[in-house]
Nucleic acid binder design. Structure first.
Lengths: 222, 222
DNA sequence: CACAATTATATAGATTGGCATATCATTATC
DNA sequence: GATAATGATATGCCAATCTATATAATTGTG
């Protein structure tokens, strides 16, 4: 496989990872079978143009033929658009929430919902267009911070009562109400993620219960 | 074939045409068989990435994967590099010569050498790096303008003599000397073209007779 | 250890890629 | 003016390889 080819394939792979899409999820969106995506990413197959374009489109990438002379300038332009997002307040909010979650996970390391939440947020961070979703991100972060406060208060109370905390299954360590809130948060994040990954025919972003409706989305599995 | 695919193929085709390369010439340079190039350009075949990259490379194009968001900016950059050439004095000289030739063709519409010359000049215009060849272009334009003057003088003389101009074959309407000069001009232009298309292992540009030496070059046929 | 999700492999079928050649256009020669 | 010749592009045929369906290996989780 030529260098240029490898470079393109790597870019595709990176883009998929940045969006937090699994090969299967990407497959569903593109119509390109998952097994192909696997081969493409690993096996150095000489992919056909239609497949490449399908994959690129779904990853919000455009395949362009630019004069070599302009290649450097183009790279510069591309670089200048991507990290612009990183400086925006939306990402700051996102990072803040991510910190909160990491903090929570330190206290509740076995809570799978927290891990899921962290992963979803991380995936969200990889999306280019997340920068415009400040409000949505605040709506996500606020309840999570509230949740953290509630849990801290709870921990304080429990400390007084000195219960047998280790024996109880970890999921039971926090009241059902908070657990539900947590799951709702995961759902909201993944919902937003799906919205941003690209316009998919699904219900708008207002929080929905945590149960599944379909399995088209990326990673929005239980 | 998808729209995006078609667009890329068209771009390739245009790039080839702009370089004045025949399918066969491109084939020689890329290793991609001419029959494929034909199929690619016409038959809507789902070309493989390696072929696409080979063709692109030879046409001085880079295949880039850019975020859709940055696509417009990239287009702008590409546009801004290409026509920069169009404003340069070298291109002005080229256009001047082209005008002269068009003018001549109006008077001698059947003279195949003139058509060839015009085509060669047009192909030259499509080359990115022609902008640096002001002197060479002047060397081309000067004899052509001189040729035109000579022919105009000749036409004036003939008008007086009132010969049967229509009956004589068109090639005979101008004296052998001028015809030779014309052919020399064609050769010079195509020579320069070959030089610029990209560095190919051939003799340098000093004017050579119009006969063929090999068939590797683009269009440097008789 | 079972279960689920993600990724990799195997075999069957479709299509490209390459070779030889046909078609079409233009030029040269008689 | 007809015909041959040169060059450019398009079309059949066959091997090579990609794409697709199904399945297996791998990894993480409870």
């Amino acid at each position: 496989m030529s260098y240029a080819t490898q470079e393109l394939i790597d870019a595709l792979k990176a883009a998929r990872a940045a969006k937090g899409l699994s090969q299967r999820a990407l497959s569903k969106r593109t119509g390109v079978p998952q097994s192909h995506i696997s081969k493409i990413e690993t096996g150095g197959v000489d992919i056909r143009l239609s497949s490449l374009i399908e994959l690129a489109r779904t990853l919000d990438l455009d395949l362009k033929l630019v004069p070599c002379k302009a290649a450097a300038a183009v790279d510069s332009v591309v670089r200048s658009t991507a990290p612009a997002v990183a400086a925006m307040p939306a990402v700051k909010e996102l990072n803040r929430t991510l910190d909160t979650v990491r903090n929570l996970r330190y206290v509740y390391p076995d809570l799978s919902e927290l891990k899921k939440l962290q992963n979803s947020l991380q995936a969200l961070k990889g999306l280019r267009n997340v920068g415009r979703e400040l409000e949505a991100l605040r709506d996500i972060g606020r309840p999570i911070r509230k949740l953290k406060q509630a849990l801290e208060k709870l921990a304080g109370e429990r400390q007084g009562r000195a219960e047998q905390q280790k024996a109880t299954p970890y999921a039971a360590r926090i009241p059902a109400e908070q657990l539900l809130a947590l799951r709702r948060a995961v759902g909201t994040v993944q919902n937003l993620h799906n919205q941003l990954v690209d316009t998919i025919p699904e219900q708008p972003l207002p929080p929905r219960p945590a149960y599944r409706l379909d399995d088209d989305g990326a990673n929005d599995d239980g």
